[in-house]
Amino acid sequence: MSIACTGEGRTLRAALSGEVDHHRARALMGELDTLIESALPRSLTLDLSGVTFMDSSGIAVVLRAWRRMGELGGVLRVSGVPAQAGKVLRAAGLDRLFALED
């Protein structure tokens, strides 16, 4: 498990760490899918503070979690966004869909 998950009830915080690229994206998506389906959270915070690198594969990971949370009527927050990952997510316009918090 490369995602550290904390929280109680239906408020979850999932901390991603390391490099988020195509090599790791499928496993991360699978873990997030499982997490969301099993907890059905109202609020999910993706904590990216431990992410050391992200490319466009990370955009797909975050967008997938955002879409699934929307389908469940919940909200996604993205926090602890490092400068490099933030630049990638902003280049894709994700800051227009949800706030990218430092």
């Binding site: 994206a25 499928r26 998506m29 490319d55 466009s56 594969s57 955009i59 797909a60 967008l63 997938r64 630049k87 990638v88 280049a91 894709a92």
Partner: peptide, 15 residues
Amino acid sequence: NGERSGMGFTIMESF
């Protein structure tokens, strides 16, 4: 498939 964002060239061009 749904695992790709389609943003690869856009990122290359912006960076």
